[in-house]
Structures are given as C-alpha cells and as structure tokens.
Design a protein around this nucleic acid. Structure first.
Length: 832
RNA sequence: GGGCGGAUGGCGAAAUUGGUAGACGCGCUAGUCUUAGGAACUAGUGGGGCGACUCAUGGAGGUUCAAGUCCUCUUCCGCCCACCA
C-alpha cells in the first residue's frame, strides 16, 4: 500500500463507517467500570469548522481515545449551541428560515466532524434549538422563578443598537457589544434577571475546589465576582433644613462605602454619582442650575467614554455639607462623573492625600487635603510637597485615638469602633451583578411567562411546556422582539383566571442554553426529566472540559451557577461541574489570530482533501503545547504526513508478524537497545498523555520510529522484537492517527473490531535498565569530556576513571582537585 | 492603574525541574537514485575561529562546583480586568 491521498481517503472513509455502524463509541452507564467524561465546549453551528475547532476537538479526542484504551468507560458527546443571532441575521438578510438554516448548518458541521474521525457518541447529540431541549430551559427558568431567583425589574440596562437587544454585564467588553463591537448604550427597560448574586459567596468560595483549573481562569472569576470588604459610613447631612419641608421621606443620612476606613480622618469632601437619588434633595437653590446642567452633560457621555480611565474627572459642588462622623468636621458634597451609581452606595468619601483619583479631583477643584498616613521612613510629608497621593502602607496621624497605629491594623480597629459607635457598619460589596437574560430576539428560547391584567405575571404551567417558538414568522430586525408581532403567539388565556392575556415576547440569552447542556448529555433522550438523576450521578462531574479562554468568565461562571442551583434542587450532589479545565491556545496565521474578518483563515477542508484527517491531527498536536498559541504552517502538515508515510511503509515492508517470546536479558545488543527504547517510549508517551504534553509525545514517537527504521533484525528473535515494537508503536499512535492505526492494526492480524478497544501498551521497569551510561565530565563547570561508565561503579571508581581520561588530564595537569562533584549516572564536575 | 502569562537558531519548539542548551520537526545546503521532482535516501545545519577552543537562552547584576531554570533590578510583547471607592 502506498500512503497517498487516494489510499488515505479510502482508509479514513472505511473506518469512519465502521465506527458509525458498529457504534464503537456508544457509551452507557456501567457501575462496574470507572467512568471518564471528556467534553469540549460545544460549537455554534456555523456550518464549517475552523482550525480552532480542529485544535480543540483533536485535543479532546486524543484524551478520549487514550482513556478508552486505558480501560475507562468514556463519555465523549457532541452537540450544538444552536440558538443565537447569526441564524436570525441570515433570516433578516436573505429571508431564510432560521430553523431551516440552522439545521442545514448542523448537518454540514456534523459531516465535517465525522471526517475528522472524532470519537463522539453521536446517539447523544443534541441541539439547543430542539424543542425537546429548550423545553427544559423553560422548566429550569420556572424552577428559578418559584424560588425567587428569576425576577423582572426595570432598571438601566446595556443596549446594543446594532444587535437591537439588551446585553448582560458579562457581554459588554470595554463598553462595546461582545459580538458586534458596537458601542453599548444605556436604556431603562423592564427585563428578566437571574439572581446569580445569591450565589456570590458560593461561587467565590468553591473556586478553591477548582485545583485543576488554570490559575488565571480562577483569578479572572475571582476578580469578576469581586468581593470587597469595607465599611458603610453614615454622614449626617449638615443642612438639615433641606429636609424639613416636603422631603420628610428622605433619610438625612448619606451612606458612603469605603474599603479604606483607615483614612476616614482624612476625608475632606464627599462625592455622589450624578444619578444618586439624594442629589436633587441636597442641591441648594443657588446651585440648582449648574448641577442640572452637569447632570445633563454626564448623561450625554456614553458609558464606554465615561469608563475609559484617562478622561479628566469632572464634578460640581451641590452647595450642601455633611458631617464627618469621626471628627464632626463639616465637609462639602460634590457630584462627579468618576463615581458610579452601580457600585457600592453610589457615594464615596474622598481622601485626596491617599487616593489618586481623589487627589487629581481635589487639585483641580482646590479642595482641602489632609494627610493621615505617614511613611515610617519619611514621616514628615506635607500636603504642599505632594504631587501624587500617598497610597503605600504607613502609620496613622491626625486620627485621634488611632494615631501611631499601622494603617492595616487601623482598618479593622476603626471599622469595629464605628460599628460600636453606630456611625458606620462593616459590610461586604460585590462586583457581580444579577444576570440579565431577556433578549429582544426571535431565535432563542421563549421565556415562559404570561401577563394578565387581572393576575399580573403568571408562569406558564409546567404541563404546558414547551412554549414553542412559532415557525415561519416575519423577521425584520427592527422594533423589538419579532415574537411581539406574532398574534397567535402573543394572545393566550391566563392560566389562572382564563381571561385573555399576553405572552412574554422576549427570548432567553443563549448563555442560558449552554449553562447546563453537559448535564443533558448524560441522558440526552430523556423526555420526562431535565436529566436523569442516576445517569448524571454516574457520569458527572465532567472529568475534562476543554475550550477557549474567551469563556473564562461568562460561560464557565454561568455553568457553575446552574450546577449549584441544581444542587439546591436536589438533582445533583456535587458543587462544581468541571473537575479539570484545559484552555487551548488560539490558532494564528502569520502572527495574527486566524479569523474571517482578517481574512487569514486556513480551511481545514483543504487540508483534509490534500492530506487527510490523520496528518492534520498529528500536525496540530505536534506544533505546540495545547495551551500555547499555535502558529499555523502548511509545511508542518507535510512533516506529519511524511511521518505517517514512513510508518506505513515500515509496517508494509518489514513487519513479519513473528510472535516468539523473548527475554530482555538474553537479547542481542541492538535488539536489547530497541526493546529498551520501546519500554522507555511507552513510559514517556503515557506520562506525556497524562499531563497533556501531546507535542513531546509525538516527538518521542518520532525518535522511536527513527530507531525502528535503523534496526536490522538478524534472526527470528530480533524480528519478534521488531514486530513487537511496531505493535506498541501503532497502539500509542492510535489516539493521534486513528484511521491509519486501525488499518495497520488490522493488517497486523488483530481480531478486534477497533484498535480503540485494545489495551494501552504497558512498559516493564526492568527493561529500561542500561548496562553502561554516558557520564559528562566538566572542569569548573565546563564540558570537557564524556565517559562510558558501567552503571554498577561507585563514586570512587568513576572518579578514578574520569581523572585517567586523556582530555581531562590535559585540563587538570598537576593542579590540585579542590572539589569533586558526582551526580549519579549523569555528570561529574571537577573543580581545580 | 491592577492581575496573569511570555521572550531560547531562519521558523514551530525541547530541556530529566539547578546538571551535556537547541531534542523532535519544518526550512535550508550538498550528495545518491531518477527523463523529471514539490518523491525517497545519505550527510550537514546557533554565531565566531583552519584549529585547540570560544561566545550564545531579551538586558544588567547576584547566589552556586554548576543557572534557560533560583534571587534583585530592567526592557519589550501578549491577554484579561479596570474611574470598583
């Protein structure tokens, strides 16, 4: 056989058919066997797979096939995250039906994935746009509603004018829409939220359980959840006259959140966010006009601009004063654009001497400053000398009874003291916001809620699920949710009172769909439950999850939240869905991320046609470690192809199928060396696969193939060693190049259906031993000679040998040996 | 501003975790076989030097018998977060 394009196509098609027909990768619960759940982040079905997919899924496939051969019961499913905007946009542009378009893409993509030879259990495949899937989205939503975790509220939301929909906080990147990069606007809308903030503490604490996640993902989640400890300080509003008439409902107390209570004695003014509810009440008549103007000005600035750090801080005086509760000083109240309403209390105390933003603001507006922390090394800092805030550690000054205290200790002490004196309260603030899930789009899961004029907001009863997405409707892409124009959908009887009512016409954010699909895979065809509890108990949690770093916050945080919710429902008994996480690096071309918009993509299809799936798989794993970026080069596929070609020829021409027992100790020198290398390579490759060093495993196999080629059997025993080596080789390479290895394994006389069912090769520690080792000899740390040393020699004997060496003698001459270092079987360093 | 990664030949990358720097592969050079080669095989391939040698892991110091690896400082590059009080 020759390993050419035709032959490769023949082999690949042949084996893909066998895997499919004989259901080689079908998985089922088997309580007698240890399970292993490998999962890659399921794709949006765009139709074509790209190199990023190829890389992601090849990594997963090698892991899956390796674990299978190790005898584990592997679950390796694939499905589609099929709701979302591209289908809808296609509908708007070309008038196609989103469902038809999506299912067409799914078929195409499935075909491409099969051509790559991935070991999926296709019987478990699912698409989130299937009614039998999204029905359970609705069910989950109702369960959350029952528990007060899904609620509707009106508030300012992120609005993408281009996608014509609201966005979650997590979907806003630098003030722009994560999908289309349009600048996000603020709108006041009544929308559905999930109360993920109820889980803040658990989402944070359980990060400790994720010891097998990349540290940076854990850190990103930690920062996103953003727990900060501090004190809410109560400032009495000085001019209480403001509250005498007409404003009785307002509390004359202004609450300010700070993480730096140690600086409270240095607070010289207070700043409110322009949107703060007290602003109107405290603004004095004289300042009314200018404050109004300022508020208008700020409202005109987009959030992305307002948030872009280098903007000059603008602010204005309200005319009012508050009393600093620790020293009764009257300090002015300002409003400024650098204070955000949606964090803390929307009000801050400003300590210009010890906060850079406050410092800049105070300088600009000539507000007073007061130093309350001094550097112990330079304790005489004066306000006039400062050109920046002093933000380092130090000792308190001008802070009454706390003077001299280290500011770290003072944080705690002042907080406690304030609490006792009832002028403040130690609190915790979170950065995490509730999750806005309403989308004014068609191609998503309808939110199962009904609005009745009599009964108010009424959930759709469980037995009426799914609320199906109406088909064949007009999608214009303008004017809110398309469902609102579908009268058959909107008009419904109230489930409570039977009177005419209206359905919710928004759909769910697609991140809802992907927050629990890994559980659905455990019992994908179950029509009576969200998932089968017993099957989930067996398969979950996912042992290895693989996907892009871009999901470090969004998808992974939401999935963790859902899992905890399911635990509270009693459906699962674990806290975290993904035990081990691998974030694969991006695929680059010419130093840039491969992307359609850059036009530098390489279509996997062209590689498949030219080389086949196996060379592509080997190449992409060999080119870089899985977490690193991978620079694509066509030439590298050539190399992988050559490697497989050499293996194929070798098996074809020199494999004889000799099966004779042999003893390592009695083998000829060359055969023993090959046998030793066979064992060493098994050890190396096994270890590398356990630790996901796929690239070095390939290189170890390349080295082994070089040795096999050089080995010329002299007799039947030699041939037996040769054949055995080749057998081990094919088994080790099978996860990487499954088609070729299936073919070779069959030719080698196997009676199993698939090489994936053969036990992973084992190595024998005794066969790793060498009689002689090479020891490097250094003089003063520089390499001067190498010695062949029998392993059994002790240090004294090795020393003698080294000093007798010609090259070494030249360097040592008659200089006294100051020091002699011997690293067993490896190195000698002689210091003269 | 904060956090996390990086930096090793022409290129992708290895380096037993402090012990032969550049494994393996791509590319390149020469040769063999060929009507031909974008096939296969053989040899070579970090820089300098005819050579013994010597210089080399972004840069500068340090620790050590020994540093790509540890410590201090520094320069670039990438990613994430960010007026978060």
């Amino acid at each position: 056989m020759s390993y050419n394009t035709n032959e490769i196509q023949r082999i690949e098609t042949k084996w893909q058919k066998i895997w499919d027909e004989k259901k080689i990768f079908k998985s089922g619960v088997d309580n007698g066997r240890e399970k292993y759940y490998v999962l890659e982040m399921f794709p949006y079905p765009s139709g074509k797979i790209h190199m990023g997919h190829v890389r992601n899924y090849t990594i997963a496939d090698v892991i899956a096939r390796f674990r299978m051969m190790q005898g584990l019961n592997v679950l390796h499913p694939m499905g589609y995250d099929a709701f979302g905007q591209p289908a809808e946009n296609a509908a708007i542009k070309r008038g196609v039906d989103p469902a038809e378009w999506t299912y067409g893409c799914i078929d195409e993509m499935t075909h491409e994935l099969k051509r790559m030879g991935f070991s999926y259990d296709w019987d478990r495949s699912l698409s989130t746009c299937d009614a039998e899937y999204y029905k359970w989205n609705q069910w989950i939503f109702l369960k959350m509603f029952e528990r007060g975790l899904a609620y509707k509220k009106e508030s300012p939301v992120n609005w993408c004018p281009s996608c014509d929909t609201t966005l979650a906080n997590e979907e806003v990147i630098n003030g722009a829409c994560w999908r289309c990069k349009s600048e996000v606007q603020q709108k006041n809308l009544s929308q559905w939220y999930l109360k993920i903030t109820d889980y803040s503490e658990r989402l944070l604490k359980d990060l400790d359980l994720l010891t097998q996640w990349p540290e940076r993902v854990v850190t990103m989640q930690k920062n996103w959840i953003g727990k900060s400890f501090g004190v809410e300080i109560f400032f009495r509003i000085g001019d209480s006259a403001l509250f005498q008439e007409g404003n009785r409902a307002l509390s004359p107390i202004l609450k300010v959140f700070t993480t730096r209570p140690d600086t409270i004695f240095g607070a010289t003014y207070v700043v409110l966010a322009p949107e703060h509810p007290l602003v109107d009440a405290i603004t004095t008549p004289a300042n009314k006009a200018s404050v109004e103007a300022f508020k208008k000005e700020v409202a005109g600035v987009s959030k992305s601009e307002r948030v872009s750090g280098d903007l000059e801080k603008k602010g204005i005086f309200t005319g009012s004063y508050v009393v600093n509760p620790v020293n009764q000083e009257l300090i002015p109240v300002w409003i400024a654009d650098y204070v955000l309403m949606d964090y803390g209390t929307g009000a801050i105390m400003a300590v210009p001497t010890h906060d850079q933003r406050d410092f800049e603001f105070a300088k600009k507006h000539q507000l007073p400053m007061k130093i309350v922390i001094q550097d112990p090394a330079w304790p005489d800092l004066k306000v006039e000398q400062m050109d920046a805030a002093y933000v380092e550690q130090g000792n308190l000054t001008g802070s009454a009874q706390f003077d001299g205290m280290n500011n770290q200790d003072a944080m705690q002490a002042i907080g406690e003291w304030m609490e006792k004196s009832n002028i403040g309260k130690t609190t915790v603030h979170w950065r995490l916001r509730d999750w806005l899930i309403s989308r004014q789009r068609y191609w998503g899961t309808p939110i199962p809620m009904i609005y009745c004029d009599t009964c108010g907001v009424v959930p759709v009863p469980e037995n009426q699920l799914p609320v199906e997405l109406p088909k064949k409707i007009q999608i214009t892409g303008q004017g809110g949710s398309p469902l609102a124009y579908c009268q058959d959908f909107v008009n419904v009887k109230c489930p409570k009172c039977g009177k005419p009512a209206r359905r919710e016409t928004d759909t769910m954010a697609t991140f809802f769909d992907s927050s629990w699909y890994y559980l659905r895979f455990c019992s994908a065809r179950n029509s009576s439950q969200v998932f089968d509890k017993q099957e989930a108990k067996y398969w979950m949690p996912v042992d290895q999850y693989i996907g892009g770093i871009e999901h470090a916050i969004l998808h992974l945080l939401y999935s963790r939240f859902f899992t905890k919710f399911f635990k509270d429902l009693g459906l699962v008994d674990f806290d975290e869905p993904f035990v081990r996480l691998l974030t694969q690096g991006m695929v680059l071309k010419d130093g840039e991320v491969m992307s359609k918009s850059r036009g530098n993509t390489v279509d996997p299809d062209t590689i498949l046609v030219k080389y086949g799936a196996d060379p592509l798989r080997v190449c992409i794993l060999f080119a870089a470690p899985p977490e690193d970026q991978l620079e694509w080069s066509d030439g590298a596929v050539d190399g992988s192809w050559k490697f497989l070609n050499r293996l194929d020829r070798l098996a074809d021409e020199r494999f004889k199928g000799v099966k004779v027992g042999y003893d390592f100790k009695t083998l000829s020198g060359a055969a023993q060396e090959l046998e030793r290398e066979r064992n060493a390579t098994i050890k190396k490759v096994t270890g590398d696969l356990e630790t996901y060093k796929f690239n070095t495993a390939v290189s170890a196999m390349m080295i082994m193939l070089n040795s096999i080629e050089k080995f010329v059997p002299q007799n039947e025993i030699d041939q037996a060693v040769f054949d055995q080596t080749l057998r081990s080789f094919v088994l080790m390479l099978a996860p990487y190049a499954p088609h070729l290895c299936e073919e070779l394994w069959q030719k080698m006389g196997s009676d199993v259906t698939s090489v994936s069912q053969v036990k992973w090769p084992q190595y024998d520690e005794a066969s790793l031993q060498r009689a002689v080792v090479e020891v490097v000899v250094q003089i003063n740390g520089k390499l001067r000679s190498k010695l062949e040393v029998p392993v059994e020699l002790n240090e004294a004997q090795v020393r003698e040998l080294a000093l007798k060496d010609e090259k070494i003698q030249k360097w040592v001459e008659d200089k006294p040996v100051r020091k002699f270092i011997y690293v067993q079987g490896r190195l000698i360093n002689i210091v003269v």
